[in-house]
Simulated assay, not measured.
Amino acid sequence: MKIAIGYKVIEGPWGGGNRFVGALSNALMTAGHSVVHDLNDADIDVILIIDPRTRIPNIPFGAGGILRYLAFRNPRAVVVHRINECDERKNTRGVNFRLRLANYAADHTVFVGSWLKDLAVWRKGDGHGSSVILNGADPAVFNANGSQSWNGTEPLKLVTHHWGGNWMKGFDIYQKLDRMMGDPAWAGKIEFTYIGNVPKGFVFENARLLAPMDAEHLASELRSHHVYVTGSINEPGGNHQNEGALCGLPLLYRNSGCMPEYCDGFGLMFDGPNDFEPALSRMIHEYETWRARVAAYPCTTERTVQSYLTLIQTLHHDRDKLVQSRHIWRNPIAFLLNQFPF
């Protein structure tokens, strides 16, 4: 098969979506398929929408180009829309509308977290199929080799990392941790490292702040800690907690967005700043239990890409039925609106 992926990988430290596309492309080519990142060929079998916002430099095509391709060049291509974003993530406006509009071109929708299916990010009423495929991290890079278990006497080292510096990535929690380090009740008992970008004007007083890192350096830094914490609010389907867990770090995670689905059974949950300290105290007392459990963390790249390979093969096998039920001109206004770049 020939698969067109609407995303160009950027070298260097970037977001989890960048690593996902690289891993999926490699898996597809290893399986004998051809991968392209444009719609120039007339024999494309499957088209994958990663992000509908074509004004972003590494997004080579969007729903408008796909619809023209289906209507005027190759109606037999199957379109898969991966939804990994929402307005709820950063308190934005317009993202859900753009996702829902682009979803008009899809024959099948993949969600990176089950909670997204309940949001107005897709055209559920159109009746096309959907799946939930969780993100995964690469265990060849993110693994516990060399990771040291907490000895119970030294300070417990907590860490998190985010490419995006939006406040909703959990900075109410990270700020609380920073202040706890200066509190006599916690001073000397915990340490906290933040890796990545922070909101404009935000300053840590006690925590370590490190710049974004490429995968190898990031994994090495994660392994030098004991517990991974994520305070992210309305995270669609994050990969940061996967990378931390695969490096052998038990998880302290917020009861929000995708986190319960990804983290349940591999750490302790909290609701927000008010109950974070009790969760941390419990982690300190139960550390060895969670350290042992996280060794079985399942969200790996292999599992994710295999799920996509299986889905793509199934959709390709059923494409005659999908094409017959598509009705690409069913809503001319939606077709037309998709022609405008976002």
Rank of each mutant, 00 (worst) to 15 (best):
N151I: 06
L101I: 07
G129M: 11
A144W: 06
K124E: 14
A144C: 09
T153L: 06
T153F: 11
L158R: 07
K124F: 11
T153Y: 15
T109V: 14
L116Q: 15
A102T: 08
G146Y: 02
K124Y: 12
G129W: 11
G136Y: 08
T153N: 07
L116P: 00
P139R: 09
V141N: 07
K124D: 02
V132T: 10
L99D: 11
L156Y: 04
A105S: 12
G152D: 09
G152P: 04
T109F: 01
L158S: 13
R123L: 14
V110C: 15
Y104P: 07
L158T: 03
Y104F: 12
E154P: 00
L116I: 00
V121L: 06
W122N: 09
L158C: 08
N103F: 08
N135Q: 09
D126S: 07
F111C: 03
G129N: 12
W115G: 09
I133H: 04
A140R: 03
V141L: 10
A120W: 15
S114F: 10
P155R: 02
D126N: 02
G113H: 12
R123T: 08
L101C: 05
E154L: 01
T109C: 04
S131V: 01
P139V: 10
L101D: 06
A106F: 13
L116M: 05
L99M: 03
H128S: 05
S131I: 00
L101S: 04
H108S: 04
L101Y: 10
A144H: 08
P155H: 09
V121T: 04
S147N: 07
L134E: 07
Y104Q: 13
F111D: 04
Q148G: 09
H108P: 00
L116W: 11
F111K: 05
H108G: 06
H108C: 01
S114I: 04
A102I: 12
S131M: 02
R123C: 01
V141D: 06
K117P: 05
T153M: 10
V112A: 10
N151F: 01
A140K: 12
K117L: 06
